[in-house]
Nucleic acid binder design. Sequence first.
DNA 1: ATTGAGATTATT
DNA 2: ATAATCTCAATC
Length: 204
Amino acid sequence: MAKLNRSFYTRPDVLQVAKDLLGCKIVTKLQGKITTGLIVDTEAYAGINDRASHAYNNKRTPRTEIMYGQGGVAYVYQIYGLHFLLNIITNKPGIPQGVMLRAIQPLEGIDVMLERRGKLRLDYSLTNGPGTLTKALGITKNELGQDVLGNRIWVEPREIVLDDSDIVETTRVGIDYAGDDAYLPYRFYIKDNPWRSKGKGLSV
DNA sequence: ATTGAGATTATT
DNA sequence: ATAATCTCAATC
């Protein structure tokens, strides 16, 4: 199956990339196992002018450096010492923007995902948060900097029809520290899809 | 060298 | 409501 190409990710409008990723299929081939899921919930982080972004104010640190590289690369970081969150970097080198995956709908390799999550039965909690979907897909900091056009992680094009009326725009989750930018409509999810992230914080 | 908080989750 | 748990970044 085809992979989304580099130019999909290097587009200048990170909001458009976040929307266009909805309905696409993310695939990981890790530990010799393939797992896939439909992307149903994303958030855009708009770089140096976005107070919610790790790269706000052009902040360059060892952690954020990857965001300044080329688009189509995985930015994985650990939060609360417990969970790994997956972003795909967008735009061209020097412009640190990216899209975080908040939730997926499991498609293939569900048995593997259940095992990685320590669950016995399939329910929404398998992959309905940014930290749970990475665990199900086997993504850890090992994948930091991986090319999303490589053979470990990639995304395949949307095969379902989605128009704007199928996409809900709302505020991002868990970024109260971002002041007014917490109210920007930079989160997108597929309307009526039950696999979307519940989230806490300021979501409408 | 020290400290404080975090793009969360699961449990009480 | 809160514990879990640790890396990173800012400050001293």
